Amino acid sequence: MLPHSEDVHGTAKRFAELEETVRQMILEGLGVAKYHEAQNESTWHLLRMSEYKAPNADEKWIGYVSHQDTNSLSVVCQHEVDGLEMQTRDGEWILVKPSPTSLIVMVGNALRAWTNGRLHAPFHRVMVRGDVTRYSAILFSVPECMIQAPDELVDEDHPPRFKPYRHDDFVRFCVSEEGARHEDKLKAFCGV
């Protein structure tokens, strides 16, 4: 049964409200809350529903390859079937197992760059196994402004890590032949 458009719109609205609240908390924690409203005005949201067919096997299959999101924040809702894995900073892959009433919020490369590398954008992938199809809903917050760390987040202890860039230009780089050659696409695109 397909969801009604009102249900999808309502879900997207609640995800966007959560994303905005989490982003506000992050900015407050970094001491740069004054930028929150400007970020809201230059952010749009994309809701994607994903289906990962069951491979009918005990071995894990790659449902979606390892990557970092290009956007600011991603809000993920898994439905009953696990499969999202994140790579720790030391390279270990771990299965993300939220409670049935929890959502997963991940930092993307736009927020990593905007915070001058103070936030980590984890590599993640979807691995599926067994005979049950995996479904998820993901909200991406996409910036339409210049991504540039504010002066408050750049100092002697935190020198500039990324050159300013436009999100659309970065996305084009990521899907280009040149971008495909790099694991850390943000660093390759605009790293200092």
Rank of each mutant, 00 (worst) to 15 (best):
P150K: 01
V105Y: 05
D131P: 13
A113K: 08
S136R: 05
M127Q: 10
I104S: 02
I104T: 00
R125P: 12
H124R: 10
D155P: 14
M106A: 05
N109S: 11
Q148S: 12
S141W: 05
V105L: 11
T115F: 13
V128F: 09
S136V: 09
V128L: 08
A110H: 06
A121K: 04
A137C: 01
L153V: 11
L111F: 15
V107S: 02
V107M: 07
R118E: 12
G117C: 13
I147N: 11
M146P: 00
A113C: 14
P122I: 03
L119M: 12
A149G: 10
R118D: 06
Q148P: 09
A137S: 11
M146N: 11
F140S: 01
V142C: 15
R118S: 10
E152A: 12
S136C: 07
E152P: 10
V107F: 07
A110R: 09
F140H: 07
G117R: 02
L139Q: 07
M106E: 04
H124P: 14
H120T: 10
A110E: 06
R118F: 04
M146W: 01
N116R: 06
T115M: 08
S141K: 03
V126P: 11
Q148D: 12
R118P: 11
L153S: 09
P122E: 05
E144R: 06
M127T: 11
A113M: 13
N109K: 08
L139T: 07
N116G: 15
E144V: 05
